[in-house]
């Protein structure tokens, strides 16, 4: 668990330097991105894969819930809500 978090922080830092790469959580509502990497652990990772969140998938942030979390994403034709605990483990590259 701790390791994953550290891992994400590392990725996040890299995200700032590498143009466009950031966590899905930071994706602004209305914009789209391509999934680059999913770093959740074990069963969580498989669940996310199950939803079609594999590298190369296009994701669009559709809307926030009234309190800001979870956020709904359009993933392969369906709208799926993810909590920030999940969306921070998904690294994406924004597209126009």
């Amino acid at each position: 668990m701790k390791l994953t978090i550290l891992n994400n922080i590392k990725l996040n830092e890299r995200g700032i330097t590498m143009a466009g790469l950031k966590s899905l959580k930071e994706l602004a509502v209305g914009s789209s991105a391509i999934v680059k990497n999913v770093s959740a652990d074990g069963i969580k990772q498989r669940r996310l894969l199950d939803l079609g969140l594999v590298p190369g998938t296009r994701v669009e942030a559709v809307g926030r819930s009234p309190l800001g979390d979870p956020i709904a994403y359009s993933i392969r034709g369906a709208v799926i809500a993810l909590r920030k605990e999940e969306s921070t483990t998904i690294m994406v590259e924004t597209v126009n």
Partner: peptide, 10 residues
């Protein structure tokens, strides 16, 4: 701690 959460909005 809360476990993972995914919910489809059909």
């Amino acid at each position: 701690i809360p476990s993972s959460f995914t919910l489809e909005l059909p």
